[in-house]
């Protein structure tokens, strides 16, 4: 059914630290790598070596520039994937029941064998988290690596989403955001984690930790004293004379 289940106690999701993310795109690569070989249709590419490459990705890293009123601009790298919303609009619009939210842990998934590829769920998502795979004709989205996190064949250290496992900066955190005592919930509380586009009313589970305030660089200009040249002698007399007229 594509009606939403009652809110689950367990809300698995990601916490992404915008302060720490260095924009290396390793999470993008790890995500694409893992999701090419396991769950559902592989993420295809079109014209991969041609002049206009394009492909399916479940995680993309944007870069934004924040320019304060005074001071220098700051660059913020911004990874974006499915936020596993509590009030997921992508689920209720689905005509076939392919798009669903799991009652037990809140993960939003697509049953690819029921997906007709109409694309309406991608239209309903404000975050651009869903992409229709051009080769398979089915909707692809972040599964929160549901085939890793419960997979007892993997060493315990690997039972986290591929993007979190690979992040070299430790900017991605995975856990239960429904449990106020979990490490991720405490991180959100401590750092003032935020929801994206709250005015859409989607109640996303994933949170973003805003960049910490940076030390303000003072206006430094090491060559400034050299510019403050006082004219002396004849030139000085001329300078004073011209000032007077």
């Amino acid at each position: 059914m594509t009606t939403l289940p009652p809110p689950s106690e367990k809300k698995l999701g990601l916490v992404i630290d915008l302060d720490t993310c260095v924009g290396c795109h390793a999470c993008v690569t790890a995500c694409k790598g893992w999701n090419d070989q396991g769950y559902g249709a592989p993420l295809s590419d079109q014209d991969a070596w041609g002049p206009a490459p394009s492909g399916t990705f479940l995680n993309r890293v944007h870069s934004y520039e924040v320019t304060p009123e005074a001071g220098v601009a700051q660059l913020v790298h911004f990874p974006k994937s499915c936020l596993h919303c509590e009030n997921a609009p992508c689920v209720t619009v689905c005509p076939t029941g392919a798009s669903y939210k799991r009652a037990e842990d809140g993960i939003v998934l697509v049953n690819e064998s029921a997906c007709i590829g109409c694309g309406l769920c991608a239209w309903a998502c404000p975050y651009g988290a869903r992409e229709l795979d051009q080769a398979a004709g089915v909707m692809k989205k972040c599964t929160l690596c549901v085939d890793r996190i419960y997979n007892e064949n993997l060493p315990e250290v690997d039972r986290i989403p591929a993007c979190v496992r690979t992040c070299p900066a430790g900017a991605r955190h995975f856990g239960d955001l429904g449990d106020p005592d979990s490490a991720v919930s405490q991180l959100v509380a401590e750092r003032g984690g935020i929801e994206l586009m709250p005015e859409q009313g989607t109640k996303p589970v994933n949170r973003y930790l805003p960049p910490r305030p940076k030390d303000r660089l003072e206006e430094t200009a090491p060559l400034a004293p050299l510019l403050d040249i006082k004219a002396t002698g004849f030139a000085g007399w001329l300078d004073r004379l011209l000032d007077r007229i």
């Binding site: 944007h62 934004y64 924040v66 913020v76 051009q134 586009m197 709250p198 805003p210």
Partner: peptide, 23 residues
């Protein structure tokens, strides 16, 4: 509101990929 970034004017500096995509 889309990024939650505060403390100044926000603009897109670089897209995720050089090419286009489904979205």
């Amino acid at each position: 509101t889309a990024t939650g970034l505060r403390g100044g004017a926000v603009r897109s500096f670089a897209p995720p990929h050089t090419g286009t995509n489904y979205l």
